[in-house]
Nucleic acid binder design. Structure first.
Length: 601
DNA sequence: GCCGTTTTCGGCCCGACTGTTTTCAGTCG
C-alpha cells in the first residue's frame, strides 16, 4: 500500500467516526495521522520496518498499533468493522469539493445511492431531477452547487500542472517590480509555496502592504501583461496573465502586514504548530495578530508581556511576530513543520547557506564540439569565464558531455579530450583580465553496466569528473544503486550529477538506495549535486536534508548550457536551504585551494 | 486518539465562507 492509500484509509475511518458522532478530537487525531502520512517523503512501510512508526507526529499507541497490524497482516480488523457500518457509496462523493463526511452520508442515505462505482453519476442525476433540494438542510442553491462540483470534478480528472519554481519566480518578480512602482505600495512580497521556494508552484500569490488598497488593486488589475480580471474585492484581486498564469494579490495595512505574511506564507502545518505552541502560552494566533486569551494556570509565567485586556496585538513584520512568541525568525524555506520550530525553541537553527557563499561551480557546458551523444552548450569558454568573473567566482569547472561511445574508438575519445584541454588552456591564457581558475572536467555517462563512458587513459586530461545517468532509466533500485556506486568508484569521479534523474512534472526519477549512496559518498569523499536547472532541482530538498543529516558533501551547480544560465544557481541555493544545508555542507562555497584539496583527496 | 516549557490529565488552530437557518453546521485552506 502506498502512503496515499494508507492516509486515505485513515481519512475514511475519520469519516466513519464523524458519522457515528465519536469524540471529535478522536476524529481530528485520525485526520492528523493521515496528514502526517501523506506528507512523508519515505515509504511508511520502510519506516515501520526500521521501527520508527511511533516517532511520527500524531501516531501514537492506538493508530500506530493498527498500522502495525496493517503491515503484518495486510488488513486492520478494527478498521474493517468500523467501515462496514457505513455505505461504501459515500466515499466517492467525498472526492467532490464542498463534500465532507456528513454531506456525503446524508445524500447517499436520503437518495438510497448504493453503488460506489456509480455514486457520483447517480447523484448528478438526482440533482438534475430536483431530488436534492427537498432534503432537509439542502435547498435549490446547494443542489445547483452540487451539480457544479460534479462537473468540476469530471474536468479536474486531468490534473492541473504546476510550474517549475524558476518560471513562477521570474513571473512574480516582474509583477512585483510593477507593483512597487505604485506610490502607495510600501512593500510587495510573494506568498505561499513560492515564498517557501518549493520546486513547483501552482498559482502565484503576492501580498502588498499599503494604506491605500483601492489604488493598488486598481493598479494591479491594469498590469500590462494581464489577459483578464477574474475578481476584485476590497482585500484582494485575481488576474490571469497572457501566458495563462493566475496571479492573486492580497492587500493589508502596514501595521498588520507581519501577521498576514506569516499566515499566507505557511506552510499550513507550520502555522498550526505555531498556534498550538502559542496556545500553551495563553495566546491565540490569527492572520491579523496575536490575541491573549483567558487561561486559568500559569498565566503570568507565559504571557507576562501581554496585557490580557488587549484584544489584538498587531505586527508590521514577521521578525516581531516571531519574537513575541519568544522565537527567532524562521526563513520561509524551512517553514514546513519538519523540526524548525523545535530547533528554534532551543535556538539551534542552522545558519543556512546563502547565494553570496558560492565561490564557483562545476557543471557548465561549452560549445566546444567533442562530438557527444548529448547536447552541446551554446556559449564559448571565454564567455563563460567572463560571466564567472562578473558573478565574483574564483573558479568554474567545465563539464561537457563525454564524446559519444558509439561513434568513437577509445583512442579517438582520448585524443578529443587531449585536444579540448589544449584548446581550453590556450583560451584561458589569452584572457589576461580574467582571474577565474578553470577546472577541466567532464560529465561522464555511467553506462548500464556501471562502467564509465571514457577509457581510463582519458582521465589524464581531466582535473576531475562528474558522473551521471543518461540512459536505461528503468533499472530496478538495486541495479541502479550498484550502477551509480560503480560509476562513482573511479578516483577522479567526484560528483554525482542530477542524482534522481527527475524532470519536474514530466518524469519521475529512478530509484536509488539512498542510505547506501550516502554512506559511500561520505566514506569515499564524493559529493552529490544539487542541480539548479529549473526542470530538475535535483537532488530534491528532502533528500538534501537527509544528506546533510548524514554529513554527505553537496555541490550546487547549474548544468548551464549557455553562459546566461549561470544565474540559475540561486534556485539550487534555495533547494539547499530547504534541505537545511549550511555553507559547510557545500563544496563550492570553499575557496579555490581548499576546494582543490578536496577534489584531489 | 494524541500529547507535554500547564506534563500522565485535560486540553486539542483559526477564521472565512456558504447555505440554510434566525444562531448554526459543514467545509475549506
Amino acid at each position: 500500500m502506498t502512503n496515499q492509500e494508507i492516509a486515505n484509509l485513515l481519512r475514511q475511518v475519520a469519516a466513519a467516526y464523524t458519522i457515528k458522532r465519536e469524540n471529535r478530537f478522536k476524529i481530528i487525531a485520525y485526520e492528523k495521522a493521515a496528514d502526517t502520512i501523506s506528507g512523508l517523503n519515505n515509504d511508511l512501510q520502510d519506516l515501520w520496518k526500521e521501527g520508527k512508526l511511533f516517532d511520527l507526529p500524531g501516531i501514537g499507541k492506538a493508530i500506530g498499533g493498527y498500522l502495525d497490524e496493517l503491515f503484518r497482516k495486510g488488513v486492520v480488523r478494527h478498521f474493517n468493522q468500523v467501515l462496514a457500518q457505513l455505505p461504501a457509496s459515500m466515499f466517492p462523493l467525498m472526492e467532490l469539493s464542498g463534500f465532507g463526511a456528513k454531506k456525503a452520508y446524508k445524500l447517499v442515505t436520503s437518495l438510497k445511492l448504493k453503488n460506489p462505482k456509480t455514486a457520483v453519476e447517480d447523484l448528478a442525476n438526482a440533482a438534475k431531477q430536483g431530488k436534492i433540494a427537498p432534503i432537509e438542510g439542502f435547498g435549490e442553491k446547494s443542489q445547483q452547487e452540487i451539480l457544479e462540483a460534479i462537473n468540476r470534478f469530471k474536468k479536474g480528472q486531468k490534473r492541473t500542472k504546476r510550474m517549475p519554481l524558476a518560471y513562477a519566480y521570474e513571473i512574480a518578480n516582474n509583477v512585483i517590480e510593477y507593483l512597487v512602482r505604485h506610490q502607495d505600495t510600501k512593500e510587495a512580497v510573494p506568498l505561499g509555496s513560492l515564498r517557501r521556494m518549493l520546486a513547483t508552484i501552482g498559482d502565484i500569490d503576492i501580498a502588498v502592504s499599503t494604506n491605500n488598497p483601492e489604488a493598488v488593486l486598481d493598479w494591479f488589475i491594469n498590469y500590462p501583461k494581464k489577459f483578464k480580471v477574474i475578481e476584485k474585492g476590497p482585500s484582494g484581486a485575481t488576474i490571469i496573465l497572457l501566458n495563462g498564469t493566475q496571479v492573486d494579490l492580497r492587500v493589508q495595512k502596514p501595521e498588520m502586514f507581519g501577521a498576514m505574511l506569516l499566515y499566507f506564507t505557511g506552510s499550513k502545518r507550520h502555522n498550526i504548530h505555531l498556534r498550538e505552541l502559542a496556545l500553551r502560552k495563553g495566546l491565540s494566533l490569527n492572520e491579523y495578530g496575536i490575541k491573549p486569551i483567558k487561561k486559568t494556570k500559569n498565566l503570568e509565567l507565559s504571557t507576562k508581556n501581554f496585557d490580557q485586556k488587549m484584544k489584538l496585538y498587531t505586527f508590521s513584520n514577521e521578525i516581531d511576530f516571531y519574537q513575541a512568541l519568544g522565537l527567532p525568525l524562521m526563513t520561509p524555506e524551512i517553514r514546513e513543520d519538519t523540526g524548525e520550530i523545535e530547533a528554534s525553541i532551543v535556538h539551534n537553527l542552522p545558519k543556512l547557506v546563502e547565494l553570496t557563499d558560492i565561490k564557483g561551480e562545476f557543471h557548465i557546458h561549452t560549445n566546444y564540439n567533442l562530438e557527444p551523444s548529448h547536447d552541446l552548450g551554446a556559449s564559448p569558454l571565454s564567455e563563460i569565464l567572463n560571466n564567472a568573473s562578473k558573478l565574483g567566482y574564483e573558479y568554474v569547472g567545465i563539464s561537457d558531455h563525454n564524446p559519444s561511445i558509439g561513434n568513437h574508438t577509445s583512442s579517438q575519445i582520448v585524443s578529443i579530450l587531449k585536444r579540448r584541454k589544449a584548446n581550453y588552456e590556450q583560451i584561458l591564457s589569452s584572457l589576461k583580465s580574467v582571474r577565474v581558475k578553470l577546472l577541466i572536467m567532464l560529465e561522464i555517462d555511467i553506462l548500464p553496466s556501471g562502467k564509465l563512458a571514457v577509457p581510463d587513459e582519458a582521465f589524464e586530461y581531466l582535473d576531475a569528473a562528474i558522473v551521471s545517468i543518461h540512459s536505461n532509466f528503468h533499472l530496478d533500485k538495486d541495479s541502479m544503486t550498484k550502477r551509480v556506486l560503480s560509476g562513482l568508484s573511479h578516483p577522479k569521479a567526484k560528483i554525482l550529477a542530477h542524482p534522481t534523474g527527475r524532470l519536474l512534472e514530466r518524469r519521475e526519477g529512478y530509484e536509488l538506495d539512498w542510505a547506501k549512496i550516502f554512506a559511500f559518498c561520505k566514506e569515499r569523499n564524493k559529493a552529490i549535486e544539487i542541480n539548479s536547472y529549473p526542470d530538475r532541482l535535483d537532488l530534491p530538498d528532502y533528500l538534501v536534508r537527509q544528506a546533510v543529516d548524514e554529513k554527505v558533501k553537496l555541490t550546487i551547480d547549474t548544468d548551464s548550457h549557455a553562459a546566461s544560465q549561470m544565474d540559475l544557481i540561486k534556485y539550487g541555493v534555495f533547494v539547499a536551504r530547504r534541505g537545511w544545508a549550511t555553507k559547510d555542507d557545500i563544496i563550492n562555497t570553499m575557496p579555490y585551494n581548499k576546494m582543490k584539496e578536496w577534489l584531489e583527496k
